[in-house]
Amino acid sequence: MQNLGYYNGKYDLIENMMIPMTDRVHWFGDGVYDATCARNYQIMELKAHIDRFFNSAKALNINLGFDKEYLADLLQELVHKLDEGDLFVYWQVTRGGNGFRSHSYDSEVKANLWITITPEKVTKIDKKFKLTMMEDKRYQYCNIKTLNLIPSVLAAQFAKEKNCDETVFHRGNIVTECAHSNIHILKDGKLITHPADEYILPGIARANLIKVCHALNIEVEERPFTLEELFAADEIIVSSSGDLCNSAYELDGKAIGGKDEKTLSKIQKYIADKWLKD
C-alpha cells in the first residue's frame, strides 16, 4: 500500500476511509494523538511515544479500551503493509459515545482509534533552520497532545508565509517551544531547555537530546530561558520526531548560533549514529 488509514478495526487507503459524522472529533476536537517516524519499518522510540499517548488520554479521562502492548503490536503490524519503510506513523483516539452533539459524555464508552501511515523521511541532521517568532497565546495544557491545534496551525502557516521553517513561541520574554517542535540553546558548553511543565510538550526527541548530553558529559539545565538568551546563544537546536536535532541560523532576519559547532557536531553525530544509520 502507498498509505494506510485505520478506524476502529477497518483499514484501507486513507482516501477511501470514511469517519462517522457523529464522532466527537467533528464538534469538539475531543481526543488526543501521538506520532513518530519509522525507518526501515522500525518505529522510532515507540514505547516512549505510547507512554506519552496514554498519559494524554488519562489526563482527559478518555477510556481507551486497549493496553499499550496491543497498540504497539497493531502499529508495528500496520507499518509492514506499506510499500516502503521510511514512514510517518500517526495515531489518535477520539472520545467514544458517538451520538448527537452533547458536551457531556459517558466515561465508560471506549474510544475510537484512528491510525494513518504515510511515506516520510526524517529530516537530515545537517539541515539548518530559519526561524520566526510570535507570542504564545495557547492555553496551559500544552503538555497534553490534544487534537486542538489551531494555535500551532496558525503559527506553522505564519512561518510558511515568512519563508521560515518554524515559529518560536514566547510568553512575554520567556521562550517556550515552537509550533511543532521543542527548542533548546547551547551556551558555554551547556544545553538549556525549558522544563517539561504545562507550557511545553514533553517531546520524545527532547528527552533523547537530554540523554545524549548526559552520555557525552554535557551539562543540562532544565529552566526557562529568555528571548535575550535565545539571540545570544552559541547554538540553537530544534527537535521533534521528524527533526531530531537541527540547528538554526536565523531568527526574524537576525543571524543566530554558529558559535559552538564543536559541541553541536558532537551531539548531532551521536544522534545520527544511533538513529539515522541505514
Rank of each mutant, 00 (worst) to 15 (best):
residue 9 G to I: 01
residue 16 N to A: 07
residue 20 P to D: 08
residue 24 R to N: 07
residue 25 V to G: 15
residue 26 H to C: 07
residue 46 L to P: 04
residue 50 I to R: 10
residue 51 D to L: 05
residue 52 R to W: 04
residue 55 N to L: 13
residue 65 G to I: 04
residue 67 D to F: 05
residue 68 K to G: 00
residue 69 E to F: 01
residue 72 A to E: 12
residue 75 L to R: 03
residue 75 L to S: 03
residue 82 L to C: 12
residue 82 L to N: 11
residue 85 G to N: 03
residue 86 D to W: 05
residue 88 F to E: 02
residue 91 W to Y: 13
residue 94 T to E: 08
residue 94 T to W: 08
residue 96 G to Y: 08
residue 98 N to D: 14
residue 102 S to P: 00
residue 111 A to D: 06
residue 111 A to I: 08
residue 121 K to V: 10
residue 123 T to S: 12
residue 123 T to P: 00
residue 125 I to R: 01
residue 130 K to Y: 12
residue 130 K to H: 15
residue 133 M to A: 13
residue 133 M to N: 10
residue 140 Q to L: 15
residue 141 Y to K: 12
residue 155 A to N: 06
residue 157 Q to G: 06
residue 159 A to T: 00
residue 159 A to M: 00
residue 162 K to Q: 15
residue 164 C to Q: 02
residue 169 F to T: 06
residue 171 R to W: 08
residue 180 H to V: 14
residue 185 I to D: 03
residue 185 I to H: 03
residue 187 K to R: 10
residue 189 G to D: 06
residue 193 T to D: 02
residue 197 D to E: 05
residue 202 P to E: 09
residue 205 A to N: 08
residue 209 L to N: 14
residue 225 F to M: 04
residue 225 F to S: 09
residue 225 F to E: 10
residue 241 S to H: 10
residue 247 S to R: 11
residue 248 A to F: 01
residue 251 L to D: 03
residue 254 K to N: 14
residue 254 K to R: 14
residue 254 K to P: 03
residue 255 A to Q: 14
residue 260 D to F: 11
residue 261 E to Q: 15
residue 262 K to Y: 12
residue 264 L to C: 04
residue 271 I to L: 13
